[in-house]
Design a protein around this nucleic acid. Structure first.
Length: 468
RNA sequence: GGCGCCAUAGCCAAGUGGUAAGGCAAAGGUCUGCAACACCUCCAUCACCAGUUCAAAUCUGGUUGGCGCCUCCA
């Protein structure tokens, strides 16, 4: 399996630290509002990475945090006149609902920054003792130049950073020894949440949180650290500096970064205000469609979001699901139980689509290519399977399709839903009308159901329905 | 100013040296009471210029256009 590593700027063969196990950490959102669909990209992408590892038999320890102490949370709390804690708790709960809708598996552990302060104090103290950090008026800074490899992830050199067009010196930070130094601990301002520390009552800097939570739940060394590409610098660069300075060993072996989700070719972000929340999208679309859309491009390519593209994704996903329900229907009506010799040969032919799918995923999780294999399998099913096919074959084909889709976190079957009895009666009445060639009545009933969001389709095997 | 990415059909998108996957849309057709589904047919020489090579969308140089990071940010 090959993974593109931001650290080395090339695809590398994945070799786990420990045989059969994967330890991965994915930087999670800051919870001060509903998550937007840009936040959803890494969730979906890295959940898919996880699912593929699990499909390959790896035991994946997947940790993803919630940043629940931050300027923006405090700002939101002040605006609403409630506590910061209330804001973060609320949006963590909402985020989890969205994740469920997108079929993103819960992490093995979702640590909260506010519950890990103790570990942060320890690591900061450790860094001070090792000479990598210093305290000034209650603020603790990381001594960036002391960490010789600083810049190795983002491939920047310190002098470029300093002589750049922008000043890294921000107001009130002229007490730093060096403009490149960043904050590990900062004293509280009036009304802000704070914790006691040897340096001041205050709160941790953003970067130290991930270093500490990763170490606590995954150990000093992990296989994969992932997040959005904007986190490469400074967040991940700083994490490396902190963790490697404190632990004295390589922090993460593989660094994965997803590209952005754009709107009109512009980065979507809360600060630019050009974003859609996942919740908004879920009003119009099944979030499975959003997931399918996200996986239709490679995770390292920028992806534009639009209603037209969502429609296209919806239709495409529907095509796959139609094939699946076709198999199910035939299976229910099949008379032949066991596979015939010909069935066996048919089934063997689908091996190539599984291989194609796996090869795509092995190549740095090329989900776009993997989906192409799924479509090829769908085409094969639609052109090969027939009423005479055996139950066993139909079942196996369904299973094969569902398995591939499950790796992508996509369902192939609609949830088991029951129609209310009056709707079922309408469908029966329509069938009677059709037999009597009373098509006007039949069409009227179909329209009536359509208005209720139910689409009827007449097939050789009878009437099927789906939600609009 | 520094660092970096991208440019494939109407749209989306794979493909990193051997002659363009897949999906959506459109068009024509088969099936069907109609519709839908499904199936068949049709749909590109890869931004531009120059070069390397027997061979380039794929490598090199340049041009144009778009974007990202360097500041909270997925």
């Amino acid at each position: 399996m090959k993974i593109y590593n931001t650290l080395t700027k090339r695809k590398e063969e994945f070799v786990p630290l420990e045989e059969g196990k994967v330890k991965m950490y994915v930087c999670g959102p800051t919870v001060y509002n509903f998550i937007h669909i840009g936040n959803a990209r890494p969730m979906i992408v890295f959940d898919t990475v996880r699912r593929y590892f699990e499909y390959k038999g790896y035991d994946v320890n997947y940790v993803s945090n919630f940043t629940d102490v931050d300027d923006k949370i405090i700002k939101q709390a002040i605006e609403e006149g409630v506590s910061a804690d209330e804001i973060s708790k609320r949006y963590i709960a909402e985020c989890k609902k969205d994740m469920e809708g997108m079929n993103v598996k819960p992490a093995t552990k979702h640590p909260l920054a506010t519950e890990e302060i103790c570990g942060m104090l320890e690591m900061i103290q450790d860094l001070i003792e090792k000479g990598y950090a210093y305290e000034k008026n209650g603020t603790v800074y990381f001594r960036t130049r002391k960490f010789k490899e600083y810049g190795k992830l983002s491939h920047k050199n310190l002098d470029d950073l300093q002589s750049g067009g922008r000043s890294l010196l921000v107001t009130g930070e002229d007490e730093k020894e060096d403009p490149l130094d960043f904050v590990l601990w900062k004293p509280k301002k009036e009304g802000e949440p704070a914790w006691e520390s040897p340096w001041s009552d205050g709160r941790p800097g953003w970067h130290i949180e991930c270093s500490v939570m990763s170490k606590k739940y995954l150990g000093e060394q992990i296989d994969i650290h992932a997040g959005g590409e904007d986190l490469v610098f400074p967040h991940h660069e700083n994490e490396i500096a902190q963790s490697e300075a404190a632990n004295g060993k390589e922090f993460a072996k593989y660094w994965m970064h997803n590209a952005f989700l754009n709107i009109d070719n512009r980065k979507m972000s809360k600060s630019l205000g050009n974003f859609f929340t996942v919740r908004e999208i879920s009003d119009t679309y099944d979030l499975q469609v959003l997931r399918f859309f996200m996986l239709s491009a490679h995770y390292r390519s920028p992806l534009n979001f639009s209603a037209a593209l969502m429609e296209s994704s919806k239709t495409g996903l529907e095509r796959i699901r139609t094939a699946a329900s076709y198999l199910k229907r035939l299976e229910e009506n099949a008379t032949q139980e066991k596979m015939t010799q010909q069935d066996k040969e048919t089934f063997e032919k689908t091996e190539t689509y599984v291989t194609g799918f796996e090869e795509a995923m092995e190549d740095d999780f090329n989900t776009a290519d993997a989906i192409a294999s799924v479509f090829e399998l769908v085409k094969f099913v639609n052109t090969t399977v027939e009423e005479e096919s055996s139950k066993e074959l139909l079942h196996q084909l369904f299973d094969r399709l569902a398995t591939l889709m499950d790796i992508l976190g996509l369902f192939v079957e609609k949830e088991a839903e029951l129609l209310s009895t009056d709707i079922e009666q309408l469908i029966e009445e329509r069938q009677t009308a059709r037999k009597e060639k009373n098509f006007a009545r039949a069409d009227a009933i179909r329209d009536e159901l359509l208005a209720k969001g139910i689409i009827l389709e007449d097939t050789r095997e009878g009437v099927t329905w789906k939600k609009a």
